[in-house]
């Protein structure tokens, strides 16, 4: 039997609206808890988020999206690196954040 874990994900406001959720998202992740497995689970539950966090084709994180957890910026970590134990155990959330991008408009 494969290992299942409940992960908490926090989305930015625009993506909460798009996914029609009001607060944190609870996701079941099977196997190692990594950026990739968490986003895979997120997109499987909310298909309308596909293409908004990572590119459809390359599967790379979009340039102005950041991944934070446990007061650390994990954006530049490998998508297959294990996330901190506190995230994998559901104690701390995995945060998807829209980067600060100045004030052009």
């Amino acid at each position: 039997m494969r290992d299942k874990k409940m992960i908490t994900v926090v989305l930015p406001a625009h993506l909460r609206t798009l996914a029609q959720v009001s607060g944190e998202v609870q996701l079941e992740v099977v196997g190692p808890v990594t950026q990739r497995s968490v986003i895979d689970a997120l997109e499987a539950r909310y298909p309308m988020l596909r293409g908004t966090i990572r590119d459809h084709v390359t599967q790379e994180r979009r340039a102005f999206v950041r991944f934070f957890a446990c007061q650390e910026d994990l954006s530049h970590e490998s998508p297959d690196a294990p996330l901190p134990d506190a995230v994998a155990s559901g104690v701390e959330p995995f945060l998807v954040v829209g980067a600060i991008a100045g004030g052009l408009y």
Binding site: P12, H14, L15, L18, M48, R50, G51, T52, I53, D55, H56, V57, R62, F64, V65, G98, A99, A101
Partner: peptide, 26 residues
């Protein structure tokens, strides 16, 4: 948006309600 890329929306009631449709342009 510059952050979250492209989405496509469709309405069947003149814009009262909307549903996201496929946003994959390859």
């Amino acid at each position: 948006s510059g952050w979250f890329g492209q989405l496509m929306q469709r309405s069947n009631d003149g814009g009262k309600t909307w549903e996201p449709v496929d946003n994959k342009f390859v």
